[in-house]
Simulated scan of single mutants.
Amino acid sequence: MKKSILLVLLLTITGIKAQDQYTRGMEKAMKLWSEQKIVDASNLFERIATAEMDNWLPYYYVAMVNTTASFGEQDEQKLSLQLGKAKEYIDIAKNISPNNPEILVLEAMTNTAWIAFDGATYGMTLSGKNVKLYQEAAELAPDNPRVVFGKAEWDMGAARYFGKDTAPYCKDIERSLELFATFKPESDFHPNWGQDRAKSVAEQCKS
């Protein structure tokens, strides 16, 4: 009995220690990212992912860091490396957590980074994929603010490209802000971004 209690206690302590290492690592990686130390943040998220093989979050953030860094990037070789890594880690995250709307939104963002870089080359092949990704995400999580906002912003961009009115999508932007106001992430490290961007687009709707 005593041995059993000691074993349970040892396993509990080991679990807490591992969790503490994970928490410290994620906090440090987030800090590096906030300081625009993109390579350092990506590398640390990668190391955490190696140790957390059944946790989709560090894989998600490797992809997120590399995707967001790619918007505005003019060096095609650097862009290709970043977005190639993003896609690789998105695919792993999807295997760990299938039918995850957060990952689907991020995948659409990665495609959008390619389209923003060269719409003539990538628009035809990736636009249809994004439509499907946002539709799938909306079916899975119709009240997720990033899903609602991401789909609305994508639809606005498509309407603008084809010379159509973007106003019908403004109501969806407003709805995303309502959802952002009450959204509670599952943990400190679960996705909780997008509100500031949604506010900015909402202001554009009013102008």
Score class of each variant (00 low, 15 high):
I115G: 15
I115T: 10
I115L: 13
A116R: 10
A116P: 07
F117R: 06
F117Y: 14
D118S: 13
D118E: 01
D118Q: 00
D118H: 15
D118T: 08
G119D: 12
G119W: 14
G119T: 08
G119I: 07
G119C: 14
G119H: 14
A120T: 00
A120S: 06
T121L: 06
T121W: 13
T121I: 02
T121K: 14
T121G: 05
T121P: 11
Y122L: 04
Y122W: 07
Y122H: 08
Y122P: 06
Y122E: 01
Y122C: 08
G123V: 06
G123C: 03
G123A: 00
M124T: 06
M124C: 01
M124Y: 02
T125L: 03
T125Q: 00
T125G: 07
T125A: 08
L126C: 09
L126N: 08
S127M: 03
S127P: 10
G128A: 10
G128H: 10
G128Q: 05
K129F: 10
K129I: 10
K129S: 15
K129Q: 05
N130Y: 10
N130K: 07
V131E: 15
V131M: 14
V131G: 09
K132T: 15
K132G: 11
L133G: 13
L133P: 02
L133N: 11
L133H: 09
Y134N: 01
Y134M: 10
Y134E: 09
Q135R: 15
Q135N: 15
E136G: 06
E136W: 09
E136R: 14
A138W: 11
A138I: 09
A138K: 10
A138R: 10
E139F: 09
E139H: 03
E139T: 03
E139I: 07
L140V: 10
L140H: 07
A141N: 10
P142F: 02
D143C: 09
D143K: 11
N144F: 06
N144P: 12
N144Y: 14
N144M: 13
P145D: 11
P145S: 08
P145V: 03
P145K: 12
R146C: 12
V147P: 05
V147R: 01
V148C: 00
V148F: 03
V148K: 01
V148R: 03
V148G: 11
F149V: 03
G150M: 06
G150Y: 05
G150E: 04
G150R: 01
G150A: 08
K151S: 00
K151W: 00
K151D: 00
K151E: 05
A152Q: 02
A152V: 03
A152F: 02
A152E: 02
E153D: 13
W154E: 04
W154Y: 08
W154L: 03
D155A: 15
D155Q: 13
D155K: 11
D155N: 04
M156T: 02
M156K: 05
M156P: 07
G157I: 07
G157D: 05
G157Y: 04
A158M: 14
A158F: 12
A159F: 07
A159S: 13
R160V: 02
R160M: 14
